[in-house]
């Protein structure tokens, strides 16, 4: 697979993730979709590192993984407390704050 094709694949994964965030009502699934978008970006960086012949992109992918892990810690704790309070992780029930 050429780097260009990998970038197209990553773009497809990113779009699937973005659609997931916007359409799924479960906060956990929405969060999962966000992680998918981050990984799509990782794939882009790694494939460009292959195509352009540098190591920067591959190193950056590790940084992104670490950041994503930290994000999971914070995100799951927020989703957990919401679930314990409301017995639901649906983003629709969280509607006390209105425009």
């Amino acid at each position: 697979m050429t780097p260009e094709n990998l970038v197209f694949l990553a773009a497809i994964i990113f779009v699937i993730g973005a659609i997931g965030v916007m359409t799924r009502r479960n906060a956990l699934v929405a969060f999962l979709s966000i992680e998918m978008m981050l990984n799509a970006a990782n794939l882009v960086m790694v494939s460009f590192a292959m195509g352009r012949g540098g190591l920067d992109g591959q190193v950056a992918a590790f940084f992104v993984m670490v950041v994503a892990a930290a994000e999971v810690v914070v995100g799951l704790s927020i989703i957990m407390i919401i679930f314990r309070t409301r017995r639901s992780t649906s983003v629709d029930t969280a509607s006390l704050l209105k425009l």
Partner: peptide
Amino acid sequence: LLSQEAALKYFLLGAFSSAFFLFGMALLYG
């Protein structure tokens, strides 16, 4: 309750936007 809901919204939207930042950054890297 309001505070937790605000945090959930901030987190989900913030993470969503940083995914866009990251993808844009990856493309500019390319």
